[in-house]
Every structure is written in structure tokens, then in C-alpha cells.
């Protein structure tokens, strides 16, 4: 049997039922509670504040320092195949691009120029998620000083861990991926800075 409740007023003010009211000298403010709450709040706000400036859409890249995955595909410009292995001993710049990608077209002249500057380096363009017809038409219009390959099933892209275009992979003479740059290059100087590492 629940004890009959005491007569009730419409307003429940500070009066409590004698049987369950706190000890008379209970602290009026729960200090421990406040400290814990402030710590939790501080942590929460800190975590969210740290996230500012980071790009939530950026995708981690773990192949840095690992051997570049091998591939062999047919060339677009002439009969025959190209495989990564044939550039062994030379640094390789691997650029993933597409005709529907504005920034890729924007950085194209910079890569074209660089391929003339760094004669020792093998420049390879790989077309990502595009049709062969589009690619051929585009290349016929603009011309290109280096090889472009068509990756019909995006197998190379999957192997390299591509997360969008444009992406440029820098591979050293030993066939190790030194880094990947995901933004388009804005100037030849920017490119020069990035390539320095694979030239030694």
C-alpha cells in the first residue's frame, strides 16, 4: 500500500515529503554535479571546435610510402599497352582527371609545361570515370605532350585509392608512392615544390 500522500497544494514549492526529503543540511548547490557537467560540456565543445577548418569530406590516404600498385592498360593515342613497370627507375607523376572535371582542365597546362621541364620524369594521365569518346575528342582538341591512359572499369583508380579528381600521385624511382596531391595546381611553382621530393 502506498502511503497516502500528504495533502497537496496546487504549487509544489520547496516542501518535500518528510520521508524522502534530503538531509536538512544538504548542499543547496550540487558542486560535484557542476564540475562533472562542465567537464563534459567543455569536452564536447572542444571536440566540435577542433573540427573547424578540417574538411569532413577529405578521405584518408594510406598508400603513402607503399609501392605503387602495378597496372597495364591500352594506350589511347596509339596501339599497344602501357604498364607502370616500364617506367622503373624513373620518377612518375600520375594524374587522374576527367573531361567533365573543371579543375582538371584548369591544371592541365601546368602539367603539360612540367612534363616538358622535367624530361627525366614520366608523366602519365589516367582518365577517371569518363567515356573513351569524350576523352579522345578532348585530347584531339587540346593536344597533349604526354601519355594518357583510359581506365575503363576504374580498376586503377580503386587500386590507387582515388577519392575524386583531380588527384596527382608522385612516385619515386623505386616505385614508392611518396605523396598524393588532391587539389589542382594553381601555378608551375606550386607543382615544382611538390615534385622536388621524387627527383632525388
Amino acid at each position: 500500500m502506498t502511503p497516502a500522500p500528504p495533502p497537496r497544494r496546487k504549487t509544489l514549492s520547496t516542501r518535500g515529503n518528510a520521508s524522502v526529503s534530503p538531509p536538512p543540511n544538504a548542499p543547496r548547490v550540487n558542486v560535484v554535479g557542476i564540475v562533472v557537467a562542465l567537464l563534459v560540456i567543455g569536452g564536447l565543445v572542444f571536440i566540435m571546435a577542433r573540427a573547424f577548418g578540417t574538411d569532413p569530406h577529405s578521405v584518408p590516404f594510406m598508400l603513402k610510402g607503399k609501392p605503387a600498385p602495378a597496372f597495364t592498360v591500352k594506350r589511347l593515342d596509339q596501339p599497344g599497352e602501357v604498364s607502370l613497370a616500364q617506367f622503373k627507375g624513373r620518377p612518375v607523376v600520375l594524374n587522374f582527371w576527367a573531361t567533365w572535371c573543371g579543375p582538371c582542365k584548369y591544371e592541365q597546362p601546368i602539367l603539360d609545361l612540367a612534363s616538358q621541364t622535367y624530361k627525366d620524369v614520366a608523366f602519365v594521365g589516367i582518365v577517371f570515370e569518363d567515356t573513351e569518346a569524350n576523352t579522345r575528342r578532348y585530347l584531339a582538341e587540346t593536344g597533349t605532350p604526354y601519355i594518357h591512359l583510359y581506365d575503363p572499369k576504374s580498376t586503377i583508380a580503386v587500386d590507387f585509392g582515388v577519392s575524386g579528381v583531380p588527384e596527382t600521385y608522385f612516385i619515386n624511382r623505386e616505385g614508392i608512392i611518396v605523396k598524393k596531391v588532391i587539389a589542382p595546381f594553381n601555378s608551375p611553382e606550386e607543382f615544382d615544390k611538390e615534385i622536388a621530393e621524387i627527383l632525388q
Binding site: 569530406h57 570515370e129 580498376t155 583508380a157 580503386v158 582515388v162
Partner: peptide, 23 residues
Amino acid sequence: CAVCQGVSIADSPASMARAQLDK
């Protein structure tokens, strides 16, 4: 999926997801 926004490669309609599923 590498190019989408937090969806799996089985769920995403993106082409790249299909390539990953092919892998």
C-alpha cells in the same frame, strides 16, 4: 564509398562505388 558522402559501396549509385564493388 570513396567518392560519396557516408554511404556504403553497395548502396551508392555512384560509378566509383560500382568500381569498388567490382573489386
